[in-house]
Design a protein around this nucleic acid. Structure first.
Length: 418
RNA sequence: GUGGGUGUAGCUCAGUUGGUUAGAGCGCCGGAUUGUGGUUCCGGAGGUCGCGGGUUCAAUUCCCGUCACUCACCCCA
């Protein structure tokens, strides 16, 4: 047997109702907020991700699916969506159409990680990018959309955390202070954090090792190092969220794992999930366009892990299935009559189906039962001779007769009454 | 990449303190007369006990390795 690839799952038909609800909600809300859909390729030149995400991040260092093209150029399956959107934006000159542009995407991303509950090698994200505005209102809008999406899906146990990373000079000042603080605690830090001290001291802030967290308790806060303009921007974001009643809490330790973030960052976690409980996150990335060779353009966005949303999605949110009819046609005359009724119902956009492997009334009804058909049309030779069909309600066992020539419209009316 | 748990029928799992034909529930197939499903009753099919090696008179059971699944670390959405 040839198996699928580790960490890559099929979304089977029984799971599709959940995915449909989630994707419909994403499209509807994004449109309501004025975002337009963009579809970008699932693979790009490797350098795009190296330059945007950052060469010393875990994603780039050990998680990318990278392979050579026939001519030797290094290609990579996208590990996230922002890089591709920004690349398309710059390359296609999307900026020339409007002063600001709001885009969203839905699709698979790829990261070679060890699979775990809520973590797959092919996973799906819904993300938005608000490009061309440095106003705090843009941050507020993006965060609000993020929150409204989860609210619409009635996910339990959510919390939204915010932080500001400031601009580069803010972070540099902070880093100095943090490093000297960490050095005083270095004997109490885990090995990992001691290594981070050199490479990426900010990451030590959200270390999960308990004694490390404790040592970090009185660490300096990045928000205390914000320049007046950074501080002012962040305050406006908070005010804006309060005005729209989006509940949040401050987390001075919230750090993003991608290099392109600056200023506002945020993360939504869901207690209904396991260890991988970050369900949506994002932030501002004012420097990324320049990094990728575009004109400096402010932007803010988020990405939501849809596979995690599906795990946390309550059953109650699923719509009740639309009523339909099973056609139980048998006998020399009944079968062709049933097939033509099947076709006319379908051409009226009424869901109708049958079982070609069943040929007696008994087996047909059993199939109907297994398919959970709410209604069955019984049509055998006797019915054809009498120019009628039997419409059976499977739950109540009630049966009524309808003329054969007007059967499809009678059935249509019947289904709609429900 | 590191660690833990698990691998027995299509599914969920029991079991063999090492010993003849390895079990249950659910599902599946057939039957309980003629054109009425789900319930009930009766019968039936289906397993190289993940794979390879070792110990042993004997291994599905013990040991080693390996692979797969899974959870956690790490990281992230």
């Amino acid at each position: 047997m040839i198996r699928g690839i580790k960490g890559i799952k099929d979304i089977t038909p029984d799971q599709m109702p959940k995915w449909s609800v989630v994707e419909r909600t994403a499209h509807a809300l994004a449109h309501a907020f004025g975002f337009q859909e963009i579809r970008i390729p699932v693979f790009e030149k490797t350098e795009l991700f190296v330059h945007s995400i950052g060469g010393n991040t875990d994603i780039v260092e050990k998680e990318m699916y990278t392979f050579p093209d026939k001519d030797g150029t290094s290609l990579t399956l996208r590990p996230e969506g922002t890089a591709g959107v920004v690349r398309a934006f710059i390359e296609r000159g999307l900026k020339t159409y409007q002063p600001s542009r709001k885009l969203y995407y839905i699709g698979p991303m790829f990261r070679h990680e060890r699979p775990q509950a809520g973590r797959l090698r092919q996973f799906h994200q819904f993300g938005v990018e608000f490009v061309g505005s440095s106003e705090a209102s843009a941050d507020v809008e993006v965060i609000t959309l993020l929150w409204r999406f989860f609210s619409a899906l009635e996910l339990p146990g959510l919390s939204l955390e915010l932080n500001s990373l400031g601009v580069l000079t803010d972070r540099q000042a902070y880093k100095k202070d943090l490093v000297s603080f960490l050095k005083t605690k270095s004997d109490r830090l885990c090995e990992n954090c001691r290594r981070r001290l050199e490479a990426n001291p900010l990451r030590a802030l959200d270390c999960k090792v308990p004694h490390c967290r404790e040592a970090m308790n009185d660490a300096p806060h990045l928000t205390d190092f914000l320049s007046p303009t950074s501080r002012d921007h962040f305050d406006r974001v908070l005010e804006g969220l309060q005005a729209l009643a989006v509940p949040y809490s401050m987390n001075p330790r919230l750090v993003r794992g991608l290099d392109y973030y600056s200023m506002t960052t945020f993360e939504v976690s869901c207690s209904a999930l396991g260890a991988q409980n970050a369900i949506g996150a994002g932030g501002r990335y004012n420097g990324l366009f320049e990094t990728l060779g575009g004109v400096p353009t402010p932007a803010v966005g988020f990405a939501i892990g849809l596979d995690r949303v599906i795990i946390a999605l309550p059953e109650a949110i699923l719509p009740t299935p639309t009523p339909w009819v099973f056609i139980a046609a048998f006998g020399e005359k009944g079968k062709p009559a049933g097939l033509s009724l099947l076709d006319s119902l379908r051409s009226m956009q009424v869901k109708a189906d049958t079982d070609y492997n069943a040929s007696t009334l008994k087996t047909l009804l059993r199939s109907a039962d297994r398919l959970e058909a709410p209604y069955v049309v019984i049509i055998g030779d006797d019915e054809v001779t009498n120019h009628q069909i039997i419409l059976r309600n499977m739950a109540t066992k009630e049966q009524e007769f309808h003329p054969l020539n007007t059967a499809s419209s009678a059935i249509l009316a019947h289904l709609h009454i429900r």
